[in-house]
């Protein structure tokens, strides 16, 4: 048993990994073999074979914890006494938590809008230019970077040092300010601008993603549409405004909503840059802080449920779109 649980050497770890993959393949193979008799096996057995394992995992890994959290949001700090809607009331009355709500709204409005707008303009700009692939790869690059690395990267942009003889700026932005003769600034400390400087990091990460998807859909605009427009004398900005944007509207909506969802859940950027201090906290971050640092599980759970609630309309919209496209089919 220990052999399966404690892998210490490299060879052991890799062996365990191969074993896990083999074991998984074996089990799935056995299940599939068992259901691969369409004539004799009833339909529900087939469905069970295909859907059973993933649905089981989802029940254990997502549904059960989500229900526990929902119940927890009506309980006290240690998750025992029933307190009704006290936790929710606290969220909407405590001034610090209201600030958290305000910040969350700023994030969820600004990040999708700016990232998508930037991605759209950029995708249009680089489309069919000489260095298209390189330019796109460079803009997409932040997508491949973990939150840990992103935090370290931006440290060297925002870092503040006093403007004093013998001390050099090590943050790029402050160095630029000093070069043009201005005082260095505490970018992450001064409220309320600091929230915007942190939002900029999230935009930096997501713009490349928006750009990639929108670029793909711009390329998929049928040529007859652009040709027809061109024959009508439309070009430049007009082409962008009246042809490109309407043609990729579905993709735009998708990018906006999905960036919005992930923005609601984001926590590691705020955590990394300020730890939620100086009035920069957002719901996902506050959930963390309440649940794990302050041991206030009830309030934490209420914040998590609030997160669910905020995402629901977006998911509902997507589901409706899904239904519509099913009907078209």
């Amino acid at each position: 048993m220990d052999w399966f649980l404690d892998a210490e050497t490299t060879a052991h770890k890799l062996a365990l990994m191969v074993l896990a993959i083999a074991l998984f393949a074996l089990v799935m193979g056995a299940i599939l073999f068992a259901v691969d008799k369409p004539k004799r096996v009833p339909q529900w057995v087939v469905v069970l074979g295909f859907l059973g394992p993933p649905v089981l995992l989802l029940l254990v890994g997502l549904v059960y914890p989500a229900l526990r959290t929902l119940v927890g949001s009506f309980q006290g700090r240690d998750g025992e006494d029933f307190v009704g809607v006290d936790n929710y009331a606290a969220v909407f009355t405590n001034p610090e938590l209201l600030l958290v709500l305000r910040n969350t709204v700023l994030w969820v409005v600004l990040v999708p809008l700016v990232a998508t707008l930037f991605g759209l303009v950029y995708a249009y700009l680089v489309d069919r230019t000489r260095f298209e692939n390189l330019a796109k790869a460079l803009v997409f690059l932040p997508m491949a970077i973990s939150g840990v690395a992103a935090g370290i990267i931006w440290k060297f942009v925002y870092e503040y040092r006093p403007d004093q003889a013998g001390i050099n700026q090590i943050g790029l932005l402050n160095q630029l300010l000093v070069w043009v003769g201005l005082e260095p600034r505490q970018f992450l400390l001064n409220q309320p601008q600091n929230t915007f400087f942190i939002i900029a990091v999230m935009i930096w990460i997501n713009a490349g993603f928006a750009m990639t998807v929108l670029s793909a859909s711009i390329k998929a605009i049928p040529d007859d549409i652009t040709e027809a427009a061109r024959l009508d004398g439309v070009s430049g900005i007009g082409m962008f405004r009246y042809v490109t944007v309407p043609s990729i509207r579905p993709a735009l909506v998708v990018v906006l909503t999905t960036v919005a969802i992930s923005t609601l859940k984001v926590f590691d950027i705020v955590y990394t840059m300020t730890g939620g201090q100086f009035g920069t906290s957002v719901i996902a971050n506050e959930f963390y802080s309440q649940t794990f640092r302050q041991g206030n599980e009830g309030l934490g759970a209420a914040l998590a449920v609030l997160l669910f609630v905020l995402v629901v309309p977006i998911i509902a919209y997507n589901v409706r779109q899904l239904r519509l496209s099913e009907e078209i089919r």
Binding site: G147, G151, F292, R293
Partner: peptide, 17 residues
């Protein structure tokens, strides 16, 4: 926690908490 956290430690909620 005092010693285990820094601002850099991105997504560190868990280390800490």
């Amino acid at each position: 926690r005092k010693r285990s956290t820094t601002a850099v430690a991105g997504g560190l909620g868990l280390i800490v908490a």
